[in-house]
């Protein structure tokens, strides 16, 4: 049962090179990666996460808009009763915002220095510990 991940790029960042590199790295680690393109609103991200029934939503932000985007995403996930989808953040995020994001329920924050290997290992670890199918995955392993 492969881990299914939505790689989302909200906001007005102009390019998606980084997101595509991440998507391919996760694929090469055996994950199924849904990519949705640029300029996603929180509503679009959450709708996609629900329809795709992903284990993880990885949101990459370079524009500094994380403190407006993440609360909306987390609220919507709660409202739609899919709180069991793991959310992780990546991109350029100030150190002092990390605890705030965690308080919102964001499971991990990968800063710009994180390697794709860090991402892969981080996602695998979080899904094993907190993912929706954690028990089933443990039984299969």
């Amino acid at each position: 049962m492969p881990i299914k991940v939505l790689v989302a790029k909200p906001g007005l960042d102009g390019h998606d090179r980084g997101a595509k590199i991440v998507a391919r790295a996760l694929r090469d680690a055996g994950m199924e990666v849904v990519y949705t393109g640029l300029h996603q609103t929180p509503e679009m991200i959450v709708n996609a996460a629900i329809q795709e029934d992903v284990d993880v939503v990885g949101v990459s932000i370079l524009s500094g808009a994380h403190m407006t985007v993440f609360p909306k995403i987390m609220d919507l996930l709660h409202e739609r009763e899919v709180d069991d989808i793991v959310v992780v953040a990546g991109g350029v995020i100030q150190e002092n915002d990390v605890p705030k994001l965690r308080a919102l329920g964001v499971r991990e924050v990968f800063n710009a220095e994180a390697s794709t290997q860090d991402l892969i290992e981080g996602i695998e670890r979080i899904v094993a510990a907190h993912g929706r199918d954690a028990a089933r995955r443990a039984a299969q392993a």
């Binding site: 694929r27 090469d28 680690a29 055996g30 990666v33 393109g37 996609a48």
Partner: peptide
């Protein structure tokens, strides 16, 4: 790797 990039939604 059995992984996949699923990009049709874009």
């Amino acid at each position: 790797t059995h992984g996949a990039v699923l990009g049709d939604r874009v």
